[in-house]
Every structure is written in C-alpha cells, then in structure tokens.
Amino acid sequence: MLQDISILLWIIIKIILIVIPLLLSVAYLTYAERKVIGYIQVRLGPNRVGFRGLLQPFADLIKLITKEIIIPTKSNKYLFVIAPLFALVPALAAWAAIPFAQGMVLSNMNAGVLYLFSMSSLGVYGVLIAGWASNSKYAMLGALRSAAQTISYEIAMGFALVGVLLASGSMNLTNIVNSQQGGILHWWCVPLLPLFIIFWIAGIAETNRAPFDLAEGESEIVAGFHVEYSGIGFAIFFLSEYASMILIATLLTLFFMGGWLSPFSGDGFLANIFYIVPGIAWLLIKIVGFLFVYLWIRATFPRYRYDQLMRLGWKILIPGTIGWICITALLVVSHVKPWF
C-alpha cells in the first residue's frame, strides 16, 4: 500500500516536472514568436515589460486571467466550458510518451507512436466542440475547416510515420531514437527526407499554424473556432495550440533528427569535444530550431486558400508519402548501407 502511494507520488512529481517547464516554454514561445516575427518585419517586438520585454508573457497571462468570461446566450454552456479542456488535455497528455533522454520518459510504452498520434488527433475535438457550442457562424465555419483539415493532413502524417516505423522497426519512441545512432548521416531525415518534409508540412497543418491557419483565418471568419471565447477560455486554447506546436517540433526531432543523440559520433575530433553535452541539451537545441522555423514560416508565407490546402494534402502529400514508403521498403529489404 505504502509502496503504491510512493509510486503514485513519484509519477505525480514526474508529471509536474514535465508540465511546469512545458507551460513556461509555451509562455516564452509566445514571446519568441512576437520577437521573431517583429525582427523579420524590422520591428522590435515587445520590449517594455521587464528587461527587453521578458516579462511580457506574464503580463499577458495576468490580463487574460482577470478578464471577464463571456458565455454567449443560446450557446451550449457545458460544452462551451469544457471545449478548451478538450483542446488542452490531449496536448499535455501526449507528453507522457515523449522520451527526453535515454530512460528519461514518463511512460515507456511500446505503442508510443500510436498513442502520440491518437493524442495529437484528439486535439481537434476541442476545436470542433468549441465551434459548435459557441452558436456562432464564424466559430462553426472555423471548426468545420479545422476538422476537414486535420483529417486530411493526419493521413499524410500517418503515412510519413509508417516510413519511420519501417525504417526503425519499432513503435517505441526510445527504440526509434536509438535506431538512429551513429552521427548526423544516420538520422532518418537523410534517407527519409521527403517523408521528413511532408511530416513537417502536415504537422504545421495539424496544429493549424500559418500558412495553414484557415481555421482562424482572421480576414474571413474573425478568429475562427475561438471567436466567442474570452479570458481564461481563450488563454487555454492559446496554450494548447502552442503546446501542440512544441509537441510537433519534439516529434520531428525524435522521429527524424535523432532525438537526444549528438550529431557527431565515433572517434572524430568534434565528437570528443561535444561528448560532454548531455543528451537532453541536444534534444532541446533541435526542438528550439524547429520552433524557430515554425515562426519563420509564419512570418514568410501567405495563407493557403481552402481548395489549395485540400489539393496539397490529398493530391501531393499523400501520394508522395505512399511513393516514398515503397522506396523505403525497398531500401530496407535490400539493406542499403549505412542506414539499414
């Protein structure tokens, strides 16, 4: 009995150790986003609150928390209140299966890939429920778009993952990372480059980020599914969106960029220098790089039109992934060195 409680406590401590840094990084991701986009547009970004605006996320948070929560009349109140949680919970729950370094994982499940995939797909339920429960035409349209988009791009994402599964021969995330041992050339992003890029594009679409942010297309449907939300409800949607961004960046790192593995290996000069860098630092560096590109892409590309989005998803990404899965299978069967 006592042992059970201690295990439970230990798990709760681990969860806190994951969630608190995650929420902090979400806060600073919003700051980084405003800064990066500001710099790209030759502005300064927030620089008033604290040193160089570093306290800006907390000022925003306090503002959002103290704002009034407005529940629209004739909305479905229970669903309206629950919807943000439906968006937030999967975005946080997915982190249970993420290994941060060798053995540093909350739950080392063997079907980790499937779990992650299902969790990242569940996020759309929050959006759908929010759009429907708001009883607003803009929210409804945004939710419909988001649902269609997520379903379309999930297929491409799933197929891209099939390539990784073929190559690594495992669904356990730790094993997938370990199968990429041996320096930068052995990472799956080299033999599976098209799948890597397709997974990236589909991941951006999955998180409803620019240039695929039709679900909240400001110019047409105000703010999309969360148009009726204010205060803390809006903040939770915001939080879940950024948490899923970080999640997608982490998945890219784990599946294609060798997770916590150092890009240098063997007995080379660089490998000896970088031997002291811990695995989690490599993981964080890679995640930050992907997140930066997320923001960079947002600042660069205009939004897709809806039919273009569907065309890209169904006519280019899905056939592309299927084609490269066949090539991957051939590579695996013929044991092409140095990867298989």
Partner: peptide, 19 residues
C-alpha cells in the same frame, strides 16, 4: 522566400535603425 525573411531577421538582430 525564407531566405529573404531570414536576411531581414539577421539584419534586425544586429541593428534596428527604423524604430
């Protein structure tokens, strides 16, 4: 396109004479 915006990002990392 990314190169163009990246160029401006690097420029404004070092100096910003407009704001």
């Amino acid at each position: 396109g990314l190169m163009l915006t990246g160029k401006y990002f690097i420029i404004s990392c070092f100096r910003n004479r407009l704001t």
